[in-house]
Write a protein that binds this DNA or RNA. Structure first.
Length: 539
RNA sequence: GCCCCUCUAGCUCAAUGGUAGAGCAGCGGACUUUUAAUCCGUUGGUUCAGGGUUCGAGCCCCUGGGGGGGCACCA
């Protein structure tokens, strides 16, 4: 990873958080004049001087009738395309192949009457070979006047240098956008996490790893869409503003609609609306969307994050397990070219081939394995309370047997689940929307996928009996009224939908950010969220 | 909410309680095959903020702020 960084992040970008004087073009001209007046650079330097310098260049360009911010540039090739076409050229080759390319000036090497510059566009790089004899004196001076970070468009021919570096022999160079701020260090990039996350633009300019992580994220989402479209799923969009924040146990963000004068919640899950669509007969639906949970921020949690949920009529949880494996394994192949991943757990790592079958184990069996004691939600709560106490879990008075088993699982077994593991058979008490296990009425046909001791996905055979669903909701509401803020309420409209008939249905939710973390090999969710939630910057 | 760490030039980093430095960037100069170009010269600081201790604080103490990590929380 550090090698990758050394190899790829060697560009200076900028990052300035100080509120340096917002200089206008006119002021820049004044500053430049002042500079001239005082002779040799006695004026203050640093960021303010650098900006004044560059703004003065903009003034000079405009005075000469040039536009430092032209409207468009028509390029003939991207830099990746150039390399594909000409990457095989022998050292010291000149061609008459004409190109027009555009990108940002990342590096410049001035050796007298030649200037070498490194230009980068979205996915590639190329060297610009600028000869004074070719472009003429005035244009050559204009190139020398470019600053690192400027956007340029170039017309020229393809060549390689004596050392074999693929280059565009520049005939004409056009400034496409003048950068007024200097880029961060060309070799070290940005390391300050605060700056990296606040000024993601600067991070993306200089840190190849950051660009790579977001590329992977994109490929994952594209892959999931492809797989689901191929299986006949319809992509839908359901409301973000909810009257009731249901479908999960979490504290919601609260907002207010002025015209309706009503309190609304940002959604904490997609589930209940999507299942209404199955009632409506859509059979296979999915949504990839942002959800919001008003809880802590950590390396694994951001208040807003991205969930993919799908529902499929006539399926049950075993089919959901199969599709979970397929979606994630295919995403790995599409995003990284391999199903091999290194899974980083809290204090260990393991190499895994996602293409191999994933372990499945019931939650109660994992607890038994970890504690040496058989557990089951049918047991009296007192027994389980004692066991919990033995393992450092302090049960709240309102917890039933099922909740205690889940807490025991989290305390004793969860941290060991590095390789992909489907934990199944969650107690009914903690699964108000899941259907009872067909063989054990105390358990549900539910699974959660753990990788690296982190929950990545959750799915079940959906509860479709409206009478039982009402009873489950009422239990939720009772718990909420007893003081558990994260519990749910009775969603009458959802119950009405169930009364119209929800077919047998399997459902699945996948935490996209966590899958992106896994496949990008990063340890913080902030590395896969372009603009993570931060406190506002101080003025 | 609690605990620990951290904040120095535009960026990356130094600096026993004793004159705040370097590399890169910038500025001036040399160079027609460089590639983190090289070479010569050079500008640039409210050391996060505010208090305190001290003859003297970037450094020690207190308060506050940003960020990171951990805990709690997060089905």
């Amino acid at each position: 990873m550090s090698e990758a960084r050394r190899r790829c992040s060697n560009y200076r970008a900028i990052t300035v958080s100080d509120d340096d004087a917002p200089t206008t073009t006119g002021n820049a001209a004044n500053a430049a004049e002042l500079d001239d007046a005082t002779g040799d650079g006695l004026l203050a330097s640093g960021l303010a001087a650098e900006k004044a310098n560059r703004l003065a260049k903009i003034d000079a360009l405009r005075s000469a009738g040039a536009n430092p911010y032209p409207y468009r540039f028509d390029r003939s090739h991207t830099l990746v395309e150039l390399r594909a076409l000409h990457g095989g050229l022998e050292a010291g080759t000149e061609t008459d192949f004409e190109v027009a390319v555009a990108g940002r000036v990342m590096l410049m090497r001035d050796s007298g009457k030649l200037v070498f510059a490194t230009m980068r566009d979205r996915d590639g790089e190329v060297q610009l070979f600028v000869s004074k004899a070719v472009v003429g004196d005035a244009a050559f001076e204009a190139v020398k006047d470019l600053d690192l970070g400027d956007w340029v468009g170039v017309h020229g021919t393809m060549m390689t240098t004596r050392k074999g570096e693929l280059s565009v022999k520049v005939q004409r160079c056009e400034l496409l956008s003048k950068a007024v701020r200097p880029m961060p260090d060309k070799w070290h990039g940005l390391t300050d996490t605060d700056t990296r996350f606040r000024q993601r633009y600067a991070d993306l300019i200089v840190n190849e790893e950051a660009r790579r992580a977001f590329r992977i994220r994109h490929e994952i989402i594209a892959s999931i869409r492809r797989t689901l479209h191929g299986r006949g799923y319809v992509e839908v969009e359901t409301p973000v503003l909810h009257v009731e924040a249901g479908g999960a146990h979490a504290r919601p963000f609260v907002t207010h609609h002025n015209a309706l004068d009503m309190q609304l919640y940002l959604r904490i899950a997609l589930e209940l609306h999507l299942k209404r669509l199955i009632v409506g007969g859509m059979e296979r639906v999915f949504e990839i969307g942002r959800i919001f949970r008003n809880e802590g921020i950590s390396t694994r949690h951001n208040p807003e994050f991205t969930m993919m949920e799908l529902y499929q009529a006539f399926a049950d949880y075993s089919e959901m397990i199969e599709i979970t494996e397929t979606l994630i394994t295919q995403a790995a192949i599409d995003a990284t070219g391999t199903s091999l991943v290194t899974v980083y757990g809290p204090d260990a790592q393991v190499d895994v081939d996602l293409a191999q079958p994933w372990r499945r184990a019931r939650m109660i069996d994992l607890v038994a394995e970890a504690t040496g004691v058989e557990v089951h939600p049918s047991q009296p709560v007192e027994q389980l309370r004692a066991l919990a106490a033995d393992h450092g879990v302090q049960p709240a008075p309102q917890w039933g047997s099922g909740k205690i088993i889940e807490e025991l699982f989290e305390a004793t077994a969860e941290s060991s689940l590095l390789a992909p593991t489907f934990v199944t058979g969650h107690p009914v008490e903690i699964s108000p929307l899941a259907r009872q296990d067909r063989h054990d009425p105390f358990l549900t046909e539910r699974f959660e996928l753990f990788v690296g001791a982190r929950e990545l996905a959750n799915g079940y055979s959906e509860l479709n009996d409206p009478v039982e669903q009402r009873a489950r909701f009422e239990d939720e509401q009772a718990a909420k009224e007893a003081g558990d803020a994260e519990r749910g309420t009775v969603d009458e409209d959802y119950l009405r939908a169930l009364e119209y008939g929800l077919p047998p249905t399997g459902g699945l939710g996948i935490g996209i950010d966590r899958v992106a973390m896994l496949l990008a090999g990063v340890h913080s969710i902030k590395e896969v969220i372009l603009f993570p939630t931060l406190r506002p910057e101080q003025s």
